[in-house]
Nucleic acid binder design. Structure first.
Lengths: 121, 121
DNA sequence: ATCTCACCTGGAGCGGACTCCAGGTCAAGC
DNA sequence: GCTTGACCTGGAGTCCGCTCCAGGTGAGAT
């Protein structure tokens, strides 16, 4: 099978990022310089798309761009940074765990409030 | 016991909002005009503090200010808006539920990635 | 050959939610 | 009675993460 490449539109479809966001991520270095075809249009590789999946995950769990950048740099720097990457992800995982707990607690509050409102109707 | 009032500093301590945020919330109408002492300094009531607890909960679960404002207006409008408030909170509760599920799924992804990194060390 | 439409670039603009500042007024502990 | 520090107001500024725009080029279906 041929090496698959994706047009911008396909990547938008796959990753849920807007085209502008993809360009922005490339501009700030969150995404390594994407290949171009003869006309200068982006042709994303399978790897690019995979990496974007990781970014989506980090973004959706609230990681700030500055830290995603740090992770991107570690990733680019080679395998010797894997322990650092583990550390970074573990720290982030703990934050996410906290977020979940926090949300569950807040949710109890909301549901209580709803019950209270029901009780006074 | 006397009706308790809180100084700005006490409210900051209790609610975790900054003083600037409290003023901002009052300015935009999220918080009803707070009482002042003779010198014009804010003296928050027990009710104010309770309401701020609700706001904190909504804010921390990602409700945008515009919607908090709507909730505030309903609350001010009287008891006949209780069904609307229930509706609003229920909708929000569903969003929060979704957030939690989403985070749990993303978290699995992160943990997988960590495992993968561990496996290649 | 033409036309439409996806893309391109660099740079300006935006929306949300605060946060900070200048310049001034009281409060209250020593 | 002084000083320090908590507060006040109105308004400007900041930060983040995009999002939009103008002006242009190439692709690819008809």
């Amino acid at each position: 099978m041929p090496v698959s490449v994706y047009t911008p539109a396909e990547v938008v479809e796959e990753t849920g990022f807007t085209l502008d966001t993809l360009r922005y991520y490339e501009k700030i270095g969150l995404l390594e310089r994407v290949e171009r075809n003869a006309a200068g249009q982006r042709r994303f590789s399978e790897q690019d798309v995979g990496w974007l999946g990781m970014l989506r995950c980090l973004r959706d769990t609230g990681m700030p761009i500055a830290q995603m950048l740090r992770f991107a740099e570690l990733t680019r720097a080679g395998d010797h940074t894997i322990p650092d990457r583990i550390k970074l992800l573990e720290e982030h995982d703990r934050l996410v765990e906290g977020q979940i707990e926090n949300l569950m607690e807040r949710r109890r509050y909301i549901r209580n409030k709803i019950s209270y409102y029901r009780s006074v109707l």
